[in-house]
Design a protein around this nucleic acid. Structure first.
Lengths: 128, 128
DNA sequence: GCTTGACCTAGAGTACACTCTAGGTTGTAT
DNA sequence: ATACAACCTAGAGTGTACTCTAGGTCAAGC
């Protein structure tokens, strides 16, 4: 059971990213350079996929590409940068938590409006 | 105490939007056309500010400009559109709740990574 | 009367994150 | 041998949401 590798198409399916985006993320340094087969095709490892999925989490949480690149660069420099990486993640965690709090608050405003409309015409379904 | 109006500068301060963005939102129909003074300057009412703030909530919750415009157009058409507006808000509420759930999940992944780094070098501050 | 500052419109420019096209190579199936 | 499908690179194009510039009006202060 040697290291199995995946084609870009399969990685696209696994991660939900487009092939374009996968190449773009590599170009932008959000993903470490992916090893190539002899024919030049990308050969992704399971580890690569794991880190791509982590990148999608950071993106979904609103982290800009530049910040993720910084994080990935540090990761490639080895253990000595763990402290700085910790700091980036902690800062981002704060940002996400704040965003969460704001979203919750906005949700309340929206819910309030919904209740208003519902009282107007008596209908509505409640829940998603 | 007749209807007091506000200049665009004051509205910018109250809402946290730039003057450019306020004009842009009006141009794009996210805000009903603001009445002008004789000299052509915008004269915002308190109601205008209330609805601008509501728009900022929708934007912060990720609603695209096109959807907000649709909502505002309906609102201007009167009570008969309340049902459709309710539907827009409910759909968006679902989207926000889903986003909230995803963010919470991503936060867990990030927290997990943070714990990993913290165990590596023993430091970290915990909390924002 | 002239400068200054806040406002106006129309339209150009920017930032970000993709997304696609063009032109080319490689590996498998007929 | 040839068609085709999936891959490659480099670079152009797109969509969204602002953000700024240019050129002009208007009221208040010196």
């Amino acid at each position: 059971m040697a290291a199995e590798t995946l084609k870009i198409q399969q990685v696209a399916e696994k991660t939900g990213l487009s092939i374009y985006t996968l190449r773009y993320y590599e170009l932008e340094g959000l993903v470490a350079p992916v090893p190539r087969e002899k024919n030049g095709h990308r050969a992704y490892s399971e580890d690569d996929i794991y880190s791509i999925i982590f990148v999608t989490k950071l993106r979904a949480a609103g982290m800009p590409i530049a910040d993720i690149r910084r994080y990935v660069e540090l990761a490639r420099q080895g253990e000595s940068t763990a402290g700085e990486r910790l700091q980036i993640l902690e800062e981002h965690k704060c940002a996400v938590e704040q965003q969460l709090a704001e979203l919750t608050q906005h949700l309340e405003v929206i819910t309030f409006k919904i209740d208003y409309y519902r009282n107007l015409n008596g209908k509505g379904h409640d829940g998603c």
